[in-house]
């Protein structure tokens, strides 16, 4: 038995038999490799370092928010600074239904979907009516208004304390095993989102999104139904993000607006987007893991990450890497990836 690594070949001899693998760059781009890696990670953590599991769950959920957000950003041609609004909507819908109606998680998912769809449709005209900067400011405002509402109607939303007693996603008896299953579930959701958005980005749909992102007026002159596309690419991602809210609610068993609705959480999501490159869906996974581990590191080193630090990092990223980490790669390989964002002001 013999293993030999040549320059572009991996040769494996077993007795008289010989197996060869070509090592070509395009093989390394096979998504299955990375999916496999992501699946192995929580399993390894489960056996060797269970305290890492929450961080992995967090990473996947952050990526699961950032991926639809990329679609939304591309398809509306504007930066949405309020994705956490839908987390709040989905989360509260799930929490309230679970606590008051005693619905199991599968049923509250439906409630989160409906509430997400409702608010998504309700707000989607914003993407048509308001220009880039106003849109950004308005989307920034909505989560904060929502936060105020959770404080005003304390008897419903339980303000600062949050709702508790939400049915858990899964309970098999062992805490770490629960976490492993939830971790794999979060990964599955993230991969599903990735799959959906990737399909969209590779379909005929994507060229119109890219055109809208670059120049709405010209896109319309070339026959693209800009308003329809914008409504679709606002509403569906909003629903997808609302489902992440549902996941948060059932995962923690408690749900408080103060955790998700303030600017600090938004900054985290935006940084995930920034690090990956704003409309690079694969980059979002890198960004999600990067931020989750950075947070872990900061908590271990400084004790608690300072709310000042993240905005500073975000600012530095904005200035140095306008297209994110993926942008560096894309500069040389732009044919293979669809457009980056051109933010309208």
């Amino acid at each position: 038995m013999e293993l030999e690594v040549k320059r572009e070949k991996l040769v494996f001899r077993f007795g008289a038999q010989k197996f060869e693998w070509n090592i070509e760059p395009r093989y390394w781009r096979n998504p299955l490799i990375y999916v496999g890696l992501l699946i192995v990670l929580p399993i390894l953590a489960y056996f060797f370092y269970p305290t890492l599991l929450p961080t992995l769950i967090d990473a996947n959920l952050l990526a699961a928010i950032a991926i639809p957000l990329s679609w939304m950003t591309l398809g509306t041609g504007r930066m949405n600074f309020g994705p956490q609004f839908y987390i709040g909507a989905g989360g509260y819908a799930a929490a309230l239904c679970s606590i008051h109606l005693h619905w199991p998680p599968q049923v509250t998912l439906l409630a989160a979907l409906i509430v997400g769809l409702f608010f998504g449709l309700l707000m989607s005209p914003l993407a048509i009516l308001s220009g880039g900067l106003y849109y950004t400011l308005l989307t920034l405002l909505f989560p904060l208004v929502f936060l105020e509402i959770t404080f005003i109607y304390t008897d419903i939303f339980r303000g600062e304390v949050g709702l508790s007693g939400i049915a858990p996603l899964i309970n098999v008896g062992s805490f770490t095993l629960n976490q492993l299953i939830i971790g794999l579930g979060a990964l599955l959701m993230m991969l599903l989102y990735m799959f959906i958005v990737d399909k969209v980005m590779r379909s005929r749909f994507s060229t119109s999104l890219a055109a809208i992102n670059d120049d709405e007026e010209v896109a319309a002159a070339m026959g693209v139904n800009v308003n329809k596309m914008k409504i679709i690419s606002f509403t569906i991602p909003a629903v997808m993000i609302a489902v992440v809210g549902w996941f948060y609610a059932h995962y923690y068993g408690t749900f408080a607006g103060v955790t998700y609705l303030p600017l600090t959480f938004m900054l985290k999501v935006l940084m995930v987007n920034m690090i990956g490159g704003r409309v690079q869906i694969y980059g979002n996974v890198v960004g999600g893991y990067f931020i989750a581990f950075l947070e872990l590191l900061l908590i271990q080193v400084i004790g608690d990450y300072s709310p000042v630090l993240f905005p500073i990092i975000l600012l530095i990223l904005l200035l140095t890497l306008p297209e994110g980490l993926f942008g560096l790669y894309r500069k040389r390989h732009y044919r293979e990836y669809l457009p980056t964002l051109h933010v309208r002001r």
Partner: peptide
């Protein structure tokens, strides 16, 4: 008024 971030073909 080209789509600046798209290739000529796309």
């Amino acid at each position: 008024r080209p789509f600046p971030e798209l290739t000529a073909l796309s």
